[in-house]
Design a binder for these strands. Structure first.
Lengths: 265, 265
DNA sequence: CGCATTCATGCGTGTTTGTGTACGTTTTTG
DNA sequence: CAAAAACGTACACAAACACGCATGAATGCG
């Protein structure tokens, strides 16, 4: 008794696609919930999960399924073996995002990982100066994307200079993710390039809160161009391996320190 | 029993276009529904879907079809016939570019192929509203890239609206490549979307010369929004298969017609 | 004008695919 | 350790499918 294309129901493949989306956005799926929300028997759902697991797209567990740790990392992020670490950081960073917020995302590979990890259909607005981030979001769904234009610096991978600065004046964001820069508990946030730092400063100013996501090598160092004092940084996402002392130094300055899960692939 | 041009019914190509449109707007199509709403047998609909899938325009699934925007592995399916054709067009289009010029490249898959075909180290400056085009050029070398910012329309794959329009005021280009639109020897250049057409118009105005690169289905048709009269189009790049009559019609209007090499698949 | 060609279509064929049911097994829970 | 929940396998059925063929309309050529 197979009533397949009943109006209002989902196509088999469509159902599987939806399951994958939920996996990405919520981190898990429950067979019984899926059966209820997508209209299908639990048997069909189980078949789907089995099939997806066989394709290596998720991990089958009792009661439902979980995303595979390195599930959605096809081939665009081959910037070294950092991928696992950056993904772990990105997951933690994304947990700070709430529905409906406006995010200001700077260029950079870590931030690209964050953008790729953002949940769909949360009503998020993303403002960015990086074409790769914009492109990644275009290919997904449910994002309002605002691109900052200007001359593109190929080393940075995004627009810099007066124009994006000017466009930023018209933007007000909830959360800001300035890209790779140095951070120090005493002196605050620093950048390596003059133009770049100017833009990051403007980003921080245009946002309610600032989230710094830092790989270990960015810690405690100071660069040449000042971006912001430590008081303007509300959140700091660090790798699992960072010691307690370093974390405490930031906490003492009023920064919420978030620790990523160990990058277990 | 083929009643082909029956008034009120849809031509095969019209039907396929409609299917693609529904695919974009609703995210899925069901074969049975299509057969009912467009007036055709399910066989014909299935044939359409198979054909569209073969061209890489959708993903065929049991019961209907899905857009491949959220598809898992888009890379391996970029081998459809469209790619060969677009590459042949792109090669011809690029031959019109001279060293040191400033190019204005609109969003669209054909234009992306053009950008990918541009020679490096020719001192070219590229102005574009499409993140994918900007990204492709970043990863190569020897290009000056200027990104037009603004709200991004995911269907178009680039910035549209008032902001890129305004930024265009400050740009003067040598050559302009407005993206996919309809062209007719008598009435000129037409677009399908209001906002989009406005931007294309501004692009044409900001450039010394305009190059229209058209796949065969764009020929002789007229859409709803006027972009420019035929006098403002200096070059037209057509596929090899386009007949002599059609080419002559444009030549007579003062358009330089360039014929792409046959697409060697 | 007559003929061959091309093309979209509908129908009949057999095949593939998804689904529900039945029944035995495994895992979790109290 | 026993009950319940979740699971997997086997089977039957119908929907959806691909393929081949004949039909009828438009087109091109002698």
């Amino acid at each position: 008794m197979a009533r397949l294309t009943r109006p209002g129901e989902l196509l088999p493949q469509e159902r599987q696609r939806e399951i994958l989306q939920r996996l990405r956005s919520r981190g898990r799926v429950v067979a019984a919930e899926l059966a209820a929300e997508l209209v299908a028997s639990e048997d069909s759902i189980r078949r789907d999960l089995r099939e997806l697991a066989a394709q290596g797209l998720c991990k089958r567990v009792y009661g439902g399924a979980l995303p595979l740790s390195a599930a959605v990392a096809p081939l665009k992020q081959r910037r070294g073996e950092q991928v696992g670490r950056k993904l772990a950081l990105a997951r933690k960073a994304v947990s700070l995002v709430r529905p409906g917020q406006v995010l200001l995302i700077d260029a950079g590979s870590t931030n690209a990982a964050i953008a790729a990890t953002l949940p769909e259909r949360m009503g998020l607005t993303v403002v960015t100066n990086a074409p790769d981030i914009a492109l990644a979001l275009i290919e997904r769904e449910g994002f309002e994307i605002l691109l900052l234009g200007g001359r593109i610096d190929p080393r940075i991978g995004g627009a810099v200079g007066a124009q994006p600065l000017q466009e930023l004046q018209r933007v007000r964001a909830d959360l800001c993710f300035p890209g790779a820069c140095a951070i120090d508990a005493g002196t605050g946030l620093w950048g390596f390039d003059s133009e770049e730092s100017l833009l990051k400063r403007a980003m921080v100013e245009a946002s309610g809160e600032t989230v710094v996501v830092a790989t270990s090598d960015k810690l405690g160092t100071v660069a040449t161009h000042r971006i912001a004092p430590i008081e303007e940084v509300q959140h700091l996402v660090l790798e699992h391996a960072v010691g307690r002392q370093a974390r405490a130094a930031f906490s003492a300055r009023g920064v919420s320190v978030h620790r990523a899960e160990p990058a277990a692939d």
